[in-house]
């Protein structure tokens, strides 16, 4: 998939859906002097309406779900999501408990029911995901590096599954 939409600096919105803070802190870490992604023009914004990419962390708890859907709806198209950490990728250690919705597979179904289309999801596994991995994920999204495992990238609505 060619990304003509994200040629310039990208703005990211951080969406914590019930994460333990591990990945969230690594996201902040990537913004601070050691990794300093701001030098690539990557900037954290306070509203999903300003975002090019959503950094989604956490297993999506029942409680956050409505707000997560609202936040994703507010993101202008094309809607890109970076699913960061084991929880966001597949529900993590709580994949089957009573209060989370159970990973991306279930989440995609719910999004479809609500008519929220996601144009591209890139998965960044890890517990927590390392700052380097998060930056690599962004590079993958921008097409700066090649996908090494094709199954890592799921394009919703085009029939492929992870």
């Amino acid at each position: 998939m060619k990304d003509n939409h994200l040629k310039k600096s990208i703005w990211v919105f951080h969406l914590n859906t019930g994460s333990c803070n591990g990945c969230d802190i690594e996201i902040l870490d990537a913004l601070t002097p050691y990794f300093d992604v701001e030098r690539f023009g990557i900037k954290l914004v306070a509203s999903p309406r300003h975002a090019d990419v959503v950094l989604l962390t956490g297993p999506i708890t029942v409680k956050t779900l409505p707000m997560v859907i609202n936040a994703l709806k507010a993101v202008p198209r094309p809607r890109y999501v970076l699913a960061i950490g084991a929880c966001a990728v597949g529900g993590g250690i709580w994949y089957d408990t009573y209060s989370v919705i159970g990973g991306v597979k279930e989440f995609k179904k719910i999004l479809e029911e609500h008519g929220v289309e996601i144009d591209k999801i890139v998965y960044v596994p890890g517990c927590p995901a390392r700052p380097e991995a998060i930056i690599y994920g962004v590079a993958l999204l921008l097409g700066l590096v090649k996908e090494k495992v094709s199954k890592e990238v799921v394009i919703i609505g085009e029939g492929s599954h992870h």
Partner: peptide
């Protein structure tokens, strides 16, 4: 609050 409740004790 309690948005981040994941059911840990039960698990």
């Amino acid at each position: 609050g309690f948005h981040v409740h994941r059911g840990i004790e039960k698990l």
